[in-house]
């Protein structure tokens, strides 16, 4: 870990100015990811602009019926917030499927969007990694890539975005509000994270010095028909091999509107609007779900140890859509175990 200076900003514009005034600065939220990366010398900021005192921790209703999550609201406070539980149970469930209670108590909503990949090579300085060190190569391409992506990958990078929360935010079509040296702007969630291409060092479309201030949820929270299915190697504290967040508007057995996103398969939470469209106006049926799943993975490319994610991803979509249409228990394959036999 390198030496660094630290400023505790009191307001967003002050934070933005402080960041701009220090070369090599990083914003510090809950620190659950950044501090780890600093200890491993993966992140080497020389200055930290601490956001802990910014008044951005509130969760409040928006005039058009949506909900605003302050960027510094913790993951735990968000998941257990009565409005989130009632109107956006998909988000609540998705947050609780990630990390551990201790981490969720510290981690912020803004920080959740900005966490870095858990591709093994990214955090190991002894190995090449284009995301960590552009131009050094991608060791995962022909290495231990079991956890890597199968959709939207490039020869430069096959890493995945690790967040669970973001998978729900993608399905919910959230909007990310940011503030930077040039003022404020909004970014549609699907445009917030990006694919690696030749510049995998950039996880998202934030411009230099921009600070996430809030995440806006639209009014539609799919509270009647939703599911988050997370498949992983153990029941807690493991990143998704494949996850699916689904929100549906149903009328009888007919799907009026469908939104779903996948985690664990790509450099960003993966949405496929054309596949969503296949569902809309159609009666729910296993055949339809299989057709949709096939469409999502039509362009998938597997690597030595992760090709299984293609078949697993298809099955996960089918199961998640089934669960969401039927709203049947279990909501995920682990849920039945939570009641002690």
């Amino acid at each position: 870990m390198n030496s660094f200076t630290l400023t505790q900003a009191a307001a967003a514009d002050e934070a933005v100015r402080d960041f701009a005034g220090h070369a090599g600065a990083a914003y510090l939220g809950g620190g659950t990811n950044l501090i780890d990366l600093m200890k491993e010398n993966v992140a080497r900021p020389t200055h930290l602009t601490s956001l802990g005192h910014l008044p951005l921790g509130d969760i409040s209703s928006l005039p058009e019926g949506g909900l605003r999550l302050g960027a510094l609201a913790t993951n735990a406070d968000t998941a257990w917030h009565p409005e989130v539980e009632k109107r956006y149970p998909l988000l609540s469930q998705t947050i609780l499927a990630g990390a551990t209670p201790q981490l969720r108590n510290m981690a912020t909503d803004g920080g959740n969007l900005l966490q870095r990949t858990r591709c093994y090579y990214f955090s190991d300085l002894a190995t090449p990694c284009n995301k960590r060190e552009p131009g050094s190569g991608c060791a995962a391409l022909h290495g231990q890539n079991r956890v890597c992506g199968v959709l939207g990958t490039s020869e430069s990078c096959i890493a995945t975005h690790p967040s669970d929360m973001c998978v729900a935010l993608a399905a919910l079509e959230a909007v990310v509000r940011v503030q930077g040296p040039d003022g404020e702007r909004s970014i549609k969630f699907e445009d917030f994270h990006r694919l690696p291409g030749n510049t995998p060092q950039f996880d998202n479309t934030l411009k230099a010095g921009e600070l996430v201030t809030a995440i806006d949820l639209p009014a539609q929270g799919y509270a009647s028909n939703f599911t988050y299915l997370k498949l992983r190697d153990r029941s807690s504290y493991a990143f998704a091999l494949v996850s699916v967040a689904v929100g549906l508007e149903m009328e009888g057995n007919t799907i009026k509107k469908a939104r779903f996103a996948l985690g664990g398969v790509a450099h960003k939470p993966w949405r496929d609007p054309a596949a969503e469209q296949l569902l809309e106006g159609q009666p729910a049926s296993p055949d339809l779900f299989r057709q949709v799943a096939a469409k999502v993975f039509a362009s998938a490319k597997g690597y030595e140890f992760n090709s299984f994610k293609i078949e697993l991803g298809k099955r996960a979509i089918v199961r998640a859509l089934k669960q969401a249409t039927e709203m049947s228990q279990p909501l995920d394959s682990n849920a039945f175990l939570n009641s002690n036999p």
Binding site: Y120, R234, A238, F239, L337
Partner: peptide, 12 residues
Amino acid sequence: AEYHVPVNADIH
């Protein structure tokens, strides 16, 4: 985080 051993929820 990546070398997995069971968590409480895995053990019944």
